[in-house]
């Protein structure tokens, strides 16, 4: 028996034959897919297609019933958001990520607060928390009068997304998963978020961008993965199909043969 060695050439994230049930609901059916660094992946599908479930497995929120997950060639055995964060996987979700009742600075470092020890007792390093979040507030174009000590409940939808993305950048992550990042945003805010997604990819990160909107993501992505009813149905490089063709695939329930590679026998 030998432990799987760290493999430089292995994909950053690889999942094999992933299966997940919620009671009678079969959310993921034998999903296998791999993602490399420096790519922006468009993960597309209708509601209930399994795309959010898949990324919840990758971010440690759900544990799969069967199947394997590899991170940088290493088998992942335990699933908890704490471990995903440790690996450098940051998930930006629409509904969660910021606590309304806390200040921006407190939210920014939630779960990995910087501390200064006095007599061995860890106290929050308020200066560091404030400085880092103020930097993000200024870089990411929030209103002038917003300060790091303001409660998150004061922010607009776009400002919230900016804080979450800014946090993902600040912590030097390797993977940023964005779940419907532009929902409820104004046109200008949407463009801003999309630019940020591309910047992250250009910095060598793996970006998984989840959306309904194939036209929007086709402009950004290097590769498009389509899911339907818990299965991966299409996995193509951006140049292989146009946005209209892909839209047709989604409309027809996704029953099109995977053109990117041969299906490996299991």
């Amino acid at each position: 028996m030998s432990v799987t060695p760290m493999n430089k050439n292995a994909p950053l994230i690889e999942v094999r034959n992933l299966d997940l049930h919620f009671g009678a609901f079969h959310a993921l059916k034998n999903v296998s897919v791999s993602f490399d660094s420096g790519q922006l992946i468009g993960l597309v599908g209708d509601n209930g297609a399994g795309k959010t479930t898949l990324i919840k497995v990758l971010s440690g929120i759900h544990k799969p019933n069967s199947g394997e997950v590899y991170f940088a060639g290493k088998r992942v055995k335990e699933f908890h958001p704490k471990l995903a964060i440790k690996f450098g996987i940051e998930t930006i979700q629409q509904s969660v990520g910021l606590c309304d009742n806390l200040s921006i600075a407190r939210n920014f470092y939630l779960g990995r607060e910087p501390v200064k020890r006095w007599f061995g007792i860890p106290f929050l390093d308020f200066k560091k928390m404030r400085d880092a979040s103020t930097k993000v507030i200024r870089t990411f174009g929030l209103r002038e009068n917003v300060s790091a000590d303001d409660q998150v409940e004061m922010l607009s939808g776009g400002e919230r997304q900016s804080i979450k993305i800014g946090r993902a950048v600040e912590f030097k992550n390797r993977v940023v998963i964005m779940d419907e990042p532009t929902n409820h945003l104004s046109v200008r805010e949407r463009e801003h978020v999309n630019e940020l997604a591309q910047q992250l990819r250009d910095q060598g990160l793996l970006v998984i961008y989840i959306t309904h909107d194939i036209h929007q993501v086709h402009k950004l992505a290097d590769r498009i993965v389509i899911m339907e009813n818990g299965e991966k149905v299409t996995d193509v490089a951006k140049d292989e199909m146009t946005a209209d063709e892909l839209e047709e695939v989604i409309r027809c329930g996704g029953r099109v043969v995977d053109t990117s590679k041969e299906v490996e026998p299991s």
Partner: peptide, 22 residues
């Protein structure tokens, strides 16, 4: 003024967010 307190308030503010932050 401690991480423990920050997390306690986060859990009360939004369980989902607290969980997703590890």
């Amino acid at each position: 003024a401690t991480p423990g307190g920050n997390r306690l308030l986060a859990v009360g503010g939004s369980v989902g967010t607290a969980h997703s932050r590890g």
